[in-house]
């Protein structure tokens, strides 16, 4: 509240290109201080990445930048030029839900859903790196994604079921 903000009114405007979910987007006359989260949400209309804290604490804005899970609110949009950005909108491009998304629904892991897109991104990232996480590994991996509604219980169940289903599909 007491921070003296800077504004596009006092800093130079920039134009650049971002590559999001496999598509190039030209951003014109933007304030250079805009976060990736803000540009995704307000300039590109990709509002699936959420804005619960805008300070890197909640994970609701989780996206992949060149395959790395990051908080979009902590990345300057103009610094992501040249990177491959994947948002939740890119997680199920064909309109078919991913197994993680389906498991979230089937297990009741969604209440208000504000944390959900970030968690979907986090869980996919976790299972890619560690297809068989144990309970504590799951908890640690998603401990950067706050959820205020569910107490995480149904989310753990959804992850467990995804892991079990993937294991079943392999054998």
């Amino acid at each position: 509240m007491n921070d003296e903000p800077t504004s596009h009114a006092v800093t130079p405007e920039v134009g650049y290109v971002l590559r999001v979910n496999g598509r190039e987007h030209r951003i014109e006359a933007a304030w250079s201080g805009e976060s990736l989260l803000w540009v995704l949400r307000e300039r590109l209309g990709l509002s699936g990445s959420k804005n619960a804290c805008e300070q890197g604490e909640c994970g609701s804005c989780s996206v992949l930048v060149d395959g790395r899970l990051v908080c979009a609110c902590l990345v300057l949009a103009a610094s992501a030029v040249g990177a491959e950005i994947t948002t939740v909108e890119g997680a199920s491009p064909q309109g078919v839900l991913t197994d993680v998304q389906s498991a979230f629904l089937a297990e009741g892991a969604v209440q208000c859903g504000f944390c959900t897109p970030g968690l979907v991104m986090s869980v996919h990232d976790l299972l890619k790196a560690n297809p068989e996480p144990d309970d504590l590994e799951v908890r640690e991996a998603i401990s950067g994604n706050l959820c205020r509604c569910t107490g995480y219980g149904r989310i753990f169940a959804a992850i467990e079921n995804t892991v079990a289903a993937r294991r079943g599909a392999e054998s």
Binding site: L46, S47, G48, S49, K50, T87, V88, E89, A91, S92, V96, L97, D99, Q101, S102, A103, F104, L105, A106, G108, V110, G113, T116, P117, V120
Partner: peptide
């Protein structure tokens, strides 16, 4: 989506899925 296995739409006393769930997991809920 993932709910195609339901035999019929859920009624009182059952674990019904959320009608807004698909939008929420896809980040499309406004």
């Amino acid at each position: 989506g993932g709910l195609s296995l339901l035999r019929r739409a859920s009624r009182v006393g059952e674990n019904a899925p959320r009608p807004d769930g698909t939008l929420k997991v896809r980040g499309e809920f406004a």
